[in-house]
């Protein structure tokens, strides 16, 4: 299977006012094409930074990143990357359809590979809201529109930076199921940044565990649950085994004896 996202010894240094901060320390990562992979770790472990490096929003201090053999910059210019941010980041003066259309407008008519906006709106379940303005939608619906916008150019890689972090638990579960369906239909390689253990296990083929200061990948848990996934699986033994492995990976590494606060749920 081809590798879609390859990181080799990627380090990231932020120049602080008093001292430099090593946000990422020689991170290696390989994600095969078409997989759904999660990065999990405590706040400040550099998981969002890693995602932003892959999206070519930041440049690595050292190391190499290849996306299907191209540099992140080349992949970005070829519109091979779709990004969903923590906040929906819809343009408030554009309707849902106009927001989903925006990438097509920017690419121009020269590129005919894009999906139709209405097709994408249907895929994320927003039909009937095409002409609504963002403020007329709930948070979950806004994030659906943002996902439709990220997918409208049919990117090879979909990057998701805690996309449902601001939603309530119930909406979040529903959106996770939706996202899996959308991902399966779109056939992209998906990389999800999250701090919820259950979410990471439920969504992924593989969960990479990160630790903070400096940010490192300290372990990888393969998730062998069958697809398509459903909520009933979350009650199964295999699911809990995976959750426990990820939890051990997160908290065992710090080596703190005694009870530790579980922020992940």
């Amino acid at each position: 299977m081809s590798r879609d996202i390859v990181l080799h010894a990627v380090s990231m240094l932020f120049h602080g006012r008093e001292a430099d901060l090593l946000a990422l320390d020689k991170v290696d990562l390989e994600i095969p094409a078409g997989r759904f992979v999660s990065l999990i770790g405590p706040s400040g472990c550099g998981k969002s930074t890693l995602l932003r490096l892959i999206a070519d929003i930041l440049k690595p201090h050292s190391g190499r990143i290849l996306l299907g053999g191209d540099s992140p910059r080349a992949a970005r210019l070829a519109r091979a990357i779709g990004v969903v941010f923590q906040a929906p980041t819809l343009l408030p003066w554009r309707t849902v359809r106009q927001n989903v259309e925006l990438p097509l407008k920017i690419v121009g008519s020269a590129v005919a590979r894009g999906a139709s906006p209405d097709e994408m709106i249907r895929l994320v379940g927003l039909e009937g809201f095409e002409n609504a303005l963002p403020h007329e939608l709930s948070g979950g619906m806004q994030q659906r529109a943002a996902i439709a916008r990220a997918l409208v150019l049919r990117p090879r890689i979909l990057l998701l930076d805690e996309p449902f972090g601001a939603l309530d638990e119930i909406t979040r579960q529903r959106m996770n199921l939706e996202l899996l369906r959308i991902w399966a239909e779109s056939g992209t390689t998906a990389l999800l940044v999250t701090h919820s253990i259950a979410e990471a296990v439920f969504m992924s083929d593989e969960v990479h565990i990160m630790s903070a200061r400096p940010g490192r990948i300290t372990g990888t848990v393969p998730i062998d649950l069958p697809r398509p996934r459903d909520l009933a699986m979350m009650r199964g033994r295999e699911f809990f085994d995976c959750v426990n492995k990820v939890r051990d990976g997160l908290f065992g590494y710090e080596g703190i004896p005694g009870p530790v606060p579980v922020e992940a749920f």
Binding site: A55, D56, I57, R76, L77, R79, I81, V83, F85, A87, T89, L91, L102, P103, K105, I106
Partner: peptide, 21 residues
Amino acid sequence: SRQRELMHVLAASRADTWRYL
């Protein structure tokens, strides 16, 4: 900054960034 980042990710030209954002 989020909106500017969006235009960056979409590889929008300077003119398009002005026009659309």
